[in-house]
Simulated assay, not measured.
Amino acid sequence: MKQPHTIWVLGNGQLGAMMAHAGERLALHVKPIDIMSPQAEPLVLGADDIVTAEREQWPESSLSLQLSQHPHFINAPVFARLADRYSQKSLLDELAIATAPWELVSQQTQAQALHQRYGDRVLLKRRTGGYDGKGQHWLKQSEHTQIPDDWRNEAIAEQAINFDEEISLVGARTQDGRCVFYPLTLNLHQNGILMASLAPLARLESLQTKAETMLSSIMHELNYVGVMAMECFRVDDTLLVNELAPRVHNSGHWTQSACHISQFEMHLRAIAGLPLPEPKVNFQTVMINLIGVEKDNNWLSLSNGELFWYDKAVRPGRKVGHLNLSAKNQAELSQSLTLLSQWLPEQYQAPLEWVKANHN
């Protein structure tokens, strides 16, 4: 395949920006696009250009239509299929890949019937648009919670899973069907938002092959090219797929510091047809999401830290950056976590303690 002149990214958030940065060292011109720009003129796309996306779903605009209808829009059929939780869950069932028991919430669905099938706690998820804990509604039998009228046919119902841990796998598939993977990542969510990730961990190695087999079968079925993330619940030695993301993923940000090829470069290599070796992990890394906090230059003094600041307006609950901490020196990591506990607000105290308890 001839190397593309430009790789256009549908969307210009932090994921697009990090792809553009990763492309610089490969001499790939990666151009994230603000698809909702009110002054937008039609883009001039070359015959060898390709299009990718930093998000599963996007609003319709002249630019989103131009990019999504381009003949070299990689994975074009996949995005809508995985952006809808109904079709995503249906795919997992078709492939006999374990996931939480679920069903579509129809006009006839009754809360009591859901409790009879799935127990006291049932989670409703909007079919599209939900992220970082948004688009979710708990049905609790003890509280007589009911199904919102406008969620019927627009949501799925899932059995609540009493999981041991949340883990994710980030992998990539080439144009000729070869798959490569990063080590499993341990994740901590708080109010539905990813707060911290840690990888690699020796105690997760026994689940690596199982997870790779699951994600491989999904990518093969979709004829997917590029990076995909699979979020799972671990229940003993069983993995239940929670969600799939057909793009680079927050839980893979640790690869920017720990690996010789980050997830962003891996995605670009795959879609551009460039060589794709197995990623080499140089050391364990902790990723801390920075959510709704002002930039603090104290973070730059951490001897084992790398700051990735997104230059976005700071709002409560908004991801505005992340810190990667090298864990190759345990004393150094401990010192950095102690400093961060002084510099970060109250909601970070539990995640920092979680890192201390799990990094060995």
Results as ranks from 00 to 15, higher is better:
Q3M: 14
H5R: 13
T6K: 11
T6P: 03
L10Y: 00
L15N: 03
G16I: 12
A17L: 14
H21T: 14
A22D: 03
P32M: 06
I35F: 06
A40C: 13
P42Q: 10
L45V: 14
L45F: 04
G46H: 10
G46V: 10
A47F: 09
R55T: 13
Q57Y: 10
W58P: 08
W58G: 03
E60Q: 10
S61N: 04
S62Q: 12
Q69F: 01
Q69Y: 01
H72A: 07
I74R: 00
A76R: 14
F79P: 09
R85L: 11
Y86H: 15
Y86P: 00
S87C: 07
K89A: 02
K89R: 10
L95K: 02
A96F: 07
A98P: 00
A98V: 10
A100M: 12
W102Y: 05
E103S: 11
S106K: 12
Q110F: 07
L114K: 00
L124H: 06
R126E: 13
T128W: 02
G130R: 07
D132P: 08
K134F: 01
K134R: 15
G135C: 08
G135A: 12
H137N: 03
S142C: 07
T145G: 06
N153V: 13
A157P: 06
A157M: 10
A160M: 15
I161P: 09
D164L: 11
D164Y: 06
I167Y: 08
L169Q: 09
G171Q: 07
Q175T: 15
G177H: 09
C179R: 03
V180S: 04
V180C: 10
L186G: 03
S197K: 05
A199G: 08
P200G: 02
L201C: 09
A202W: 01
R203P: 02
L204Y: 08
S206A: 15
L207K: 00
Q208G: 01
T209G: 06
T209V: 14
E212G: 00
T213D: 11
H220S: 13
H220R: 09
E221A: 15
E221I: 04
L222E: 05
G226A: 06
G226D: 08
M228W: 03
M228C: 04
A229D: 06
R234H: 05
V235N: 03
D236Q: 15
D236T: 14
D237G: 09
T238V: 15
T238H: 14
L240C: 11
P246T: 12
H249S: 07
G252F: 05
H260S: 15
S262E: 04
M266H: 05
L268S: 03
L274K: 01
V281P: 04
G292A: 10
K295L: 15
D296H: 14
N298C: 11
W299T: 11
W299P: 01
S301P: 00
L302W: 00
L302A: 01
S303K: 10
W309S: 02
R318S: 09
K319A: 12
V320G: 10
V320E: 04
H322A: 12
N324L: 07
L325T: 01
S326A: 14
A331D: 14
S336L: 06
L337Y: 03
S341N: 14
W343K: 03
E346P: 00
Y348V: 07
P351E: 04
L352G: 08
L352T: 11
V355L: 13
N360Q: 14
